[in-house]
């Protein structure tokens, strides 16, 4: 106790840490917490096992003949990614603010010399890094298996798949964080996140299918509506990068390839980037409105 007097001597007034420094401190803590958490390990394990299983299954049928092409192998991996990655990122994002708020830790954090924007961005960066890590483990193991069993996918295309998946994870995380900022309780946030997942993965596509059947939508209409869904943008982006053309997706894909040509991949990546940035920006603005800088 005696040291307090010494500590409390005359010195310069304490300063807040720089914006990026504080943000990074939060990012690192969030990353550490995420990597050590159960959900993270579980998701990583599930993703890895499923990815390897899909690679194995597809290889056992044609692997020995080494035909290249866009078949159900990639489709299977794609389906898996489209199911699991959004679920993972949305729930992780949904928990990040609402959970702290519910535990009462948020106010204590905010009483530190940090801004709300720093807290939010730090958490986002940390979680995004953790998600990318998880994906790298899954894809890495799967790539090793493909290599061992003489894979039929070129590594360049595979790397693009990983990049697009990371982009997808960030878009979904961003939506999750927005949900988290808007929800008072973490159970509500998780519920909303699950609903959004269901909507993006199934409901919107099914709705658009029904719309296409009922209203006989034209190709450009179908394409325009589909691209609003980041999952569809992801799928098309991956296929464009593997196939150079979207014509595997029928008339709509052919239209897209023809209308946008080489710009299509950039356009799809940009769509996903918008999905990653806009909800995050909205979350930052909404979160910051509740307190001072």
């Amino acid at each position: 106790m005696t040291t307090i007097n010494a500590l409390a001597g005359e010195r310069a007034l304490p300063q807040a840490r720089s914006f990026s420094g504080g943000t990074l401190a939060f990012a690192r803590r969030e990353f550490r917490d995420a990597v050590a958490s159960r959900w993270f390990l579980l998701y990583t394990l599930a993703f890895t096992v499923l990815a390897v299983a899909v690679s194995f299954m597809s290889l056992s049928s044609v692997g020995t003949h080494g035909f290249a092409g866009f078949g159900r192998t990639t489709a299977g991996l794609l389906n898996l990614v489209m199911l699991i990655v959004p679920l993972m990122a949305l729930t992780a994002g949904a928990g990040c603010i609402a959970g702290e708020r519910e535990r009462g830790t948020l106010l204590y954090l905010l009483a530190q010399p940090v801004s709300r924007t720093q807290v939010l961005l730090g958490k986002y960066v940390g979680l995004a890094a953790a998600l990318v890590c998880s994906l790298c483990v899954g894809f890495g193991v799967s790539a090793c298996v493909l290599a061992w069993r003489t894979g039929s996918v070129g590594f360049g295309a595979y790397a693009m798949l990983v990049c697009f998946t990371a982009l997808l994870a960030m878009a979904m995380l961003s939506i999750g964080v927005l949900i988290s900022v808007l929800s008072r309780r973490s159970s509500v946030a998780t519920g909303v996140a699950l609903f959004v997942w269901l909507t993006l993965v199934f409901l919107s596509d099914l709705g658009l299918m029904a719309g296409t059947l009922i209203f006989q939508l034209r190709v450009q209409e179908v394409f325009g509506l589909a691209i609003l869904n980041p999952l569809q943008a992801f799928k098309m982006g991956v296929i464009v990068n593997m196939n150079a053309s979207l014509d595997v997706l029928g008339p709509v894909g052919a239209y897209a390839s023809q209308a946008f040509g080489d710009g299509l991949a950039f356009m799809l990546a940009a769509t996903m980037l918008v999905w990653a940035l806009v909800p995050l920006l909205a979350a930052v603005v909404l979160f910051a409105r509740r307190g001072s800088a």
Binding site: D205, L206, L208, A226, K235, L249, P251
Partner: peptide
């Protein structure tokens, strides 16, 4: 036109 939705969970 529905071929757009192949390779998707839907």
């Amino acid at each position: 036109n529905l071929r757009l939705f192949v390779h998707s969970p839907a």
